[in-house]
């Protein structure tokens, strides 16, 4: 398994290179640049700025320079956040997004799986229908509706929690954003769990387990759950990568210093280095999470072989 993991990590290098190259050239192909603004700069200043940031060179040269720097861990200065390097921006924001994302996903897995199992065990009853109804609502309500609603109820009407802000990062500041992040995930995970459970509960080995006189609890926990959770595991890999890199909507609404906003603002401002920083962060996470999913698959299903 170790050699498999190492091989997969090595394979990730060309994958990431392709991602970086594609994003770099696509980004430069987009019209406009970091120094285009409503106020037109004198041509000399613009030329100087471009020269300072190597923007006067052909794109392929810029790419080689960028790649050389990036390989040494230097992701360059941000074009729009003056006096900050990309590493500084992502370095301070990422822990915030990571904490929010991981808490949300943990909450979503615990609640989602429980609800999904419950729905599958009470298939086609009122319990099942209400859980699946709730899940449908959870998926369809966008978080830019859910988040203000939560703020309104718990922040303003009930006054239990702060409306926004990060403060010292203590628990009361993260409850609402985490709930807003987790709700759609709970919905998706509960549906996936139910689907997996329903399918496995119909399988021959579950019938065998019933014929052996095993109690329901043992059948669910020992014979059903591991096989039923495979679709959830597949979903969780990319979902974790997405959640820990922050959500621009949630961060805007709750005024949180995460990195989600950099994805959007970087692109709008043509902040080339910042965009590349976010792309590399997200790409690496996706690659790692997919590897993790494959390894977990092997733990859940002994038929999976690494060779």
């Amino acid at each position: 398994m170790l050699s498999y993991a190492v091989r997969r990590l090595l394979e990730a290098i060309p994958t990431l290179l392709v991602i970086v190259a594609l994003s770099f050239f696509l980004m430069h192909a987009a019209p406009g640049g970091p120094f285009d603004s409503e106020r037109v700069l004198p041509p000399e200043i613009e030329a100087n700025l471009k020269a300072a940031y190597n923007l006067d060179k052909p794109v392929w040269q810029q790419f080689v320079i960028y790649l050389g720097n990036a390989l040494q861990g230097n992701f360059g200065p941000s074009f729009t956040y003056k006096d900050f390097t990309v590493s500084e921006l992502l370095g301070t924001g990422f822990p915030v997004s990571l904490r929010l994302g991981l808490t949300a996903i943990l909450l979503a897995v615990i609640i989602g799986c429980t609800l999904g199992i419950l729905a599958a065990m009470r298939q086609n009853t009122r319990t099942d229908y209400s859980i699946m109804g709730f899940a449908m609502i959870g998926i369809t309500i966008p978080n830019f509706v859910m988040a203000p609603l939560l703020t309104l109820v718990f922040g303003i009407y009930l006054g239990m929690l702060p409306v926004a802000g990060w403060g010292d990062g203590s628990i009361q500041y993260i409850i609402l954003p985490v709930v807003a992040l987790a709700l759609p995930q709970i919905a998706i995970i509960s549906r996936l769990t139910r689907g997996g459970m329903v399918e496995v509960l119909r399988s021959n080995f579950v019938r065998t387990a019933h014929a052996k006189g095993l109690p329901e609890r043992v059948i669910i926990v020992r014979h059903t759950l591991r096989a039923a959770l495979l679709p959830v595991v597949s979903y969780l890999g990319p979902a974790i990568a997405g959640l820990v890199t922050g959500s621009v909507v949630i961060e805007q609404i709750f005024g949180l210093p995460g990195i989600g906003r950099y994805f959007v603002q970087g692109a709008i401002n043509r902040d080339y280095t910042l965009v590349m920083g976010t792309v590399i962060t997200y790409g690496t996470l996706i690659v790692l999470m997919n590897l993790l999913v494959d390894l977990v698959y092997g733990l859940l299903d002994p038929r999976v072989r690494y060779d």
């Binding site: 399988s203 021959n204 080995f205 019938r207 065998t208 387990a209 019933h210 014929a211 052996k212 006189g213 095993l214 109690p215 020992r222 014979h223 591991r226 096989a227 859940l300 299903d301 002994p302 038929r303």
Partner: peptide, 23 residues
């Protein structure tokens, strides 16, 4: 459940899928 598996046992036709794959 006190009777089946203990006093009355059953063997099924599909041995390929009748055993739990992950145990």
């Amino acid at each position: 459940n006190k009777i089946r598996g203990d006093k009355i046992a059953m063997i099924f036709q599909d041995s390929m899928t009748g055993l739990t794959p992950h145990l």
